[in-house]
Design a protein around this nucleic acid. Structure first.
Length: 333
DNA sequence: AGTAATGATTCAAA
DNA sequence: TTTGAATCATTACT
């Protein structure tokens, strides 16, 4: 009687209240289900063998199909909420950036020579011939990073696959006792993959950092500075001091100077940038240079005019110590 | 060795 | 984008 009243809420919908047989059956079922649930709840406290045995027993239980149906029903109802929590597939712009960078640095993607290193060297304004020798060590280190990167990546891939198949086996096994749709398995696999890809991203991140450090260590142009030739400095100074009022060569002039000095336009721009600020900072220090180049310019003018007008003018004083070969007319010999 | 000179880079401002 | 300013890292010199 108490059982009846206790479980009244279940029996309310039943039309079999007056049916003793049906009632008995119902009661038995309730007790049965209670037992089964008890067993299920206790399963975590048991040893593995016991649990396996219990699982087997449950699978063979006569109520199993009924339980399964109940689970299916519950799942059906909660399916909506699961559908609502659809995983949003974020495109991961950060990951894309890392990938692109690794590809650009030659860490990811196909094996290749020091193409990127050469490009970087050229962009930095170095002369093209100094590339290969200086970058041998760089390439070696880069390939080390590359090797480690790929080894790690493979390891992660393998671990991911192992784990995925493990999870899938587990789910398949579980699908015997509870309803699991392929979609759910797919979702779990997706979660696993995302976890592993986040680990991969860490690897990519640190690889990127390592490459950046390596790059700044070896490819930084400051580390292989070569002074310009005397002739180049001469040419640049000539322009600078003869345009002291406005030492800002336009693009065309820069190109011209670059060609004359066998350096890049960027280097010309650098030189003028440095020269302007350093001159301005300490004009007194550069006064001597000002005089030297002023005299030179004057000397040039005289020399040119003398050549043009009369071949036997008084010898121009070669005071500045500038290379005579550039200015001495051949007819002098 | 210590220091000055020098080419390159970075970053803010115009 | 270009420039100025500060700074870095190397080379040249004493």
């Amino acid at each position: 009687m108490e059982a009846h009243s206790m479980s009244g809420h279940v029996g309310l919908s039943g039309e079999d209240v007056g049916d003793p047989d049906g009632f008995r059956k119902h009661q038995n079922h309730h007790q049965d289900i209670g037992d089964v649930l008890q067993q299920v709840m206790a399963i975590t406290d048991e040893s593995l063998e016991e649990a396996q045995a219990r699982k087997h027993a449950l699978n063979c239980h006569r109520m199993k199909t009924a339980l399964f149906d109940v689970l299916c029903e519950i799942k059906e109802k909660s399916a909506l909420s699961i559908q609502g929590v659809q995983e949003k597939d974020s495109p991961e712009p950060h990951l894309m950036r890392l990938d692109n960078m690794l590809l650009a640095e030659g860490v990811a993607g196909p094996e290749r020579g020091g193409a990127s290193a050469a490009v970087v060297a050229a962009a930095a304004g170095g002369s093209p011939e100094d590339g290969t020798l200086e970058h041998a060590e760089y390439r070696e280190k880069l390939s080390q990073i590359r090797q480690i990167y790929h080894a790690e990546l493979d390891k992660y891939e393998q671990a991911c696959n192992e784990f995925t198949s493990h999870v899938m086996n587990l789910l398949r096994e579980q699908s015997r006792t509870r309803p699991i749709s392929p979609k759910e398995i797919e979702r779990m696999v997706g979660i696993v993959h995302r976890k592993f890809s986040s680990i991969q991203m860490q690897l990519k991140q640190s690889t990127c950092e390592a490459v950046m450090i390596l790059r700044s260590r070896f490819l930084d142009a400051r580390r292989q500075r070569r002074n310009f030739s005397k002739q180049a400095v001469e040419t640049l100074n000539e322009y600078f001091y003869s345009h002291l009022a406005n030492p800002y060569p336009n693009e065309e002039t820069k190109e011209e100077l670059a060609k004359k000095c066998c350096i890049s336009v960027a280097q010309v721009a650098n030189w003028f940038g440095n020269k302007r600020i350093r001159y301005k900072k300490n004009i007194a220090k550069y006064q001597e240079e000002v005089n030297v180049y002023a005299m030179k310019a004057a000397g040039d003018a005289v020399s040119v005019s003398s050549v043009a007008s009369s071949a036997n003018s008084p010898a121009t004083p070669n005071s500045g110590g500038y290379p005579a070969l550039c200015y001495t007319p051949d007819e002098r010999l």
